[in-house]
Write a protein that binds this DNA or RNA. Sequence first.
DNA 1: TATTGTTATACTCTATAACTATA
DNA 2: TATAGTTATAGAGTATAACAATA
Lengths: 155, 155
Amino acid sequence: MSELIAEPSTTVAPPKNHGARAWELMYEIFKASKPYVESVASSFELTPQQVYALKGLQRDRPLVMSDLATFLGCDASNVTAIVDKLESRGLVERRSADRDRRVKALLLTPAGQDVLDRINDRMQLPPPAINNLDASDKVTLCEVLGRALDSLNAS
Amino acid sequence: MSELIAEPSTTVAPPKNHGARAWELMYEIFKASKPYVESVASSFELTPQQVYALKGLQRDRPLVMSDLATFLGCDASNVTAIVDKLESRGLVERRSADRDRRVKALLLTPAGQDVLDRINDRMQLPPPAINNLDASDKVTLCEVLGRALDSLNAS
DNA sequence: TATTGTTATACTCTATAACTATA
DNA sequence: TATAGTTATAGAGTATAACAATA
């Protein structure tokens, strides 16, 4: 199958390959889903980034500040403020490691675990664009996006 | 086919439906692609939002300020600053409509059209996660994401 | 009065650089 | 010296509210 979408040469738009088109569609869906994401976060009186940080802490192994920065894909300097807010809400606790007191482990408090459980419940319902797909399209999307993400870790 | 991913009951994570999982994967791919998007934009000395605004202006019909706000999915008050920057770069021109002088049409200048052409060329190559997919996965992704986006316009 | 675009302001998210306390 | 985290600062992107010009 051709990599290019066949289009009459009289069309104004240039021919576009499917990879570029898929990326454009992902961008559109993301933009359209932003109000949904923000409404979910604000229903917990959190920002989307704070929600995502909590999700990073649900792992089996406790994260330290720099791990959370990697998980969030942002600079470590920002994580201080994010964790400050979560800590002031009583959702997260900083604990200095005994072996190296520079390092701070991040632990969910019971209240934090409770909020996270409710967030996870709520997030079982994805934004409308995704939720409107039929079951087989959802499965297909998981498979293809899974391969896309795996291709990054493999290289 | 079941909507739920079958998992042993001893698994720590709760069972997750494919819609929620697909959304999570999209989020991961977006996060991983951010450096790529920023490098493309900054190679034109533009921010990602400015690039996206230019792309909005390549339509057959000229946009006015409020149209661009809708296209960008942000409040109209922000579009003023975005267009200010593009105008100061000589890429875009504001022109008051004759029939209603409150309304300002946005036009690409020749320089703006030239930059946009180069942006479109460059964007034929999507971020690595998408580009690494094989041709048939790219086509499938276009089809499924197209249906997802259509479902929003249909409702 | 209502609408288009602007200005003023504030908050989130982000990065860089300088700092501290440990190692 | 080097590293983990913090603080200070700045810029992009966002929203709300008040405003000017025009309808």
